[in-house]
Structures are given as structure tokens and as C-alpha cells.
């Protein structure tokens, strides 16, 4: 359970890691009807300038969501998730998603948290830098006791 009062810039989120295998990608292809051949055939990936087949962008985007949900639990809601695709996760590599709080502010009844997020592979290559915004219900303040 997140202590919303304790949120502050610089806090790191727990990381989320997944292997880049056809076992993972084919499951996602099956739910998202995503069968572009560069996700399913190393030869096609090479034809497009990469060393193998590579992950689908919506799956990388979904991994960011999963990382945020794992951190927030059901107390928070995702407002925005933006990512830039710098390098694809190649088959055989491992993706790790991470994040850091960059700002915390109150908007109405919510505490809104800005985040820097990223996905790297196990060689240290940055796959996808990005930003996210999440929101939590603001904690209720106890009323001051009568004087």
C-alpha cells in the first residue's frame, strides 16, 4: 500500500522484468491480433535492419502499465503513459522497466504524481524512455480539535 503522504521526487519504483521470447510475444499477438512478421520471424527482423525478431510496441507500452500497477496497487489510477521507442527488445534479451517520481502535487481530491519511466535491456541499452502521470485519492486530513 502506497503511503501517499510520503511520495516525493526521486523515489524509485520497483522494476518489472520480462524475457523477450516468442512464448511471451505470441500470447500478446493472440490477444491484440498483432501478427506483423518482424515480431514472429528473425529473418524478417534482419531484413528490416535488426539482428532478430523484436517485441511489439503495444506490449512494451503494456509492460509500463503493469509496472505502474504493481507499484500503485488498486489505490492509484493511470492518467497518462508516453513512451518513445529508441531500440526494440530483440528476441533473447531481457526487458526491465523502471521509473522515478519527478513531481508530486495536489489537484482537487487527488494527489497527482509525475514520473520518468524507462525500459532497458540486459545489455544496458535504453529501449524506451518515457513519462507517466498517475493519481491517488488524496488522504483525508483529520480535523483540528476545537480550541
Amino acid at each position: 500500500m502506497i503511503d501517499v503522504d510520503a511520495l516525493e521526487p526521486g523515489q524509485q519504483l520497483p522494476t518489472f522484468s520480462r524475457e523477450g521470447t516468442f512464448q511471451h510475444w505470441n500470447r500478446f499477438a493472440a490477444v491484440n491480433d498483432e501478427f506483423a512478421e518482424h515480431h514472429m520471424d528473425d529473418e524478417v527482423g534482419r531484413h528490416e535492419g535488426f539482428s532478430s525478431a523484436f517485441i511489439m510496441a503495444p506490449m512494451e507500452h503494456a509492460y509500463f502499465h503493469a509496472m505502474l500497477r504493481d507499484w500503485m496497487g488498486e489505490a492509484g489510477r493511470i492518467v497518462r503513459v508516453d513512451m518513445k521507442l529508441r531500440n526494440p527488445l530483440l528476441r533473447g534479451r531481457v526487458l526491465t522497466a523502471g521509473g522515478q517520481v519527478t513531481a508530486v502535487h495536489r489537484e482537487g481530491d487527488e494527489v497527482v504524481v509525475d514520473l520518468e519511466i524507462w525500459e532497458d535491456d540486459d545489455t544496458g541499452a535504453r529501449l524506451a524512455p518515457g513519462t507517466a502521470v498517475v493519481a491517488f485519492a488524496a488522504p483525508r486530513r483529520a480535523s483540528a480539535p476545537p480550541a
Binding site: 510496441a57 507500452h61 493511470i78 497518462r80 508516453d82
Partner: peptide, 12 residues
């Protein structure tokens, strides 16, 4: 044809 950015905004 490849994807280079993905951005999403949610209402809740």
C-alpha cells in the same frame, strides 16, 4: 512500417 512513439491519456 514501425511504431516510434505511443502516448495514451485515460479519463479514469
Amino acid at each position: 512500417n514501425m511504431q516510434s512513439q505511443v502516448r495514451v491519456t485515460y479519463s479514469g
